[in-house]
Design a protein around this nucleic acid. Structure first.
Length: 264
DNA sequence: CAATCCACCTGTTCGC
DNA sequence: TGCGAACAGGTGGATT
């Protein structure tokens, strides 16, 4: 669900609310999903970072609380019927809302990600200085996967999910099934630029909130990038560039939306 | 190694 | 109206 723009928006909203405050208690009833939470009780929140779709709460005492929001997770200032866990700060309760319970949380020694899948082997942050064209093109050349599958696997760039993979491929005018290693350098560069642009624009608009409103900022406000989706969730509607009906097809097990003409 | 299912969960929307 | 099917922002594991 939440992809880089939504997770980063969450980070930016939460940090000023929490920085410097002690985490008094962590309440939940699911030690299988929310691991070692007792370790965090009494620690102070020093900083809040992000890697890909993971939120990284730096805590005093050399600890770190790592959260993955899964498909439907999000932090709210008000409790909901799907509150699964509550972080208690002085005069502030932060509720983890997660209807499908795909979200996970771990408290670990800072930087020790051995029990956290994926986090230790994420690719570069696509909006950082470290995300360079040369490395991106190399990553494309090394993979025979369809572009859509490669964009989703978090190694080429961290934080890209189903919405932004589809939107980036549309902007780059590339078919989702094109094998990555067959791209020309020019096509690879189009994808590199499209990916950065889409993610940056979405972030500037607070991410995408779909009709089910699963993703909201902690104060309940929606994002607005959904109004700019060219292909995602628009099966049968006209392509904004050429008017051809947008097609939906399952690729890499996920619904994939594209313009058969522009991305032919 | 890679592509394909299935699993994990719950809720909403769609088609008949 | 009712009911089952399809589908949903993610990821990991088993199977082939």
């Amino acid at each position: 669900m939440p992809e880089l723009p939504e997770v980063e928006t969450t980070r930016r909203r939460l940090l000023p609310l929490l920085q410097g405050k002690p985490l008094l208690r962590v309440r939940h009833q699911d030690p299988g999903r929310y691991r070692h939470t007792e370790r965090a009780e009494g620690a102070r929140l020093l900083d809040l970072g992000r890697r890909g779709k993971f939120l990284l709460f730096a805590l005093s005492g050399g600890l770190e609380m790592v959260v993955h929001l899964g498909m439907t997770g999000g932090f709210r200032l008000e409790a909901t019927p799907h509150t699964r866990l509550t972080l208690e700060f002085p005069s502030l309760l932060l509720h983890f809302h997660d209807p499908r319970r795909f979200g996970r949380l771990w408290v670990v020694e800072r930087g020790d990600y051995r029990e956290i899948p994926l986090l230790g082997r994420l690719g570069p942050e696509p909006l950082s200085e470290g995300f360079q064209l040369e490395g991106f093109l190399q990553g494309l050349r090394r993979s025979a996967k369809p572009l859509k599958a490669l964009l989703l696997d978090q190694t080429l760039a961290a934080g890209v999910g189903n919405i932004y993979a589809d939107e980036a491929l549309f902007r780059a005018r590339l078919h989702p099934l094109r094998p990555a290693q067959e791209l020309s350098p020019g096509e690879g560069e189009r994808l590199y630029r499209a990916l950065r642009e889409v993610l940056a624009e979405a972030l500037a608009l607070g991410g995408s909130t779909l009709s089910d409103r699963t993703y909201q900022q902690p104060d309940g406000r929606p994002g607005s990038f959904q109004e700019r989706h060219a292909v995602y969730g628009r099966e049968g509607l006209p392509c904004p560039a050429c008017g051809t009906p947008i097609r939906r097809q399952v690729v890499a097990g996920r619904s994939t939306h594209f313009c058969p003409r522009c991305q032919g």
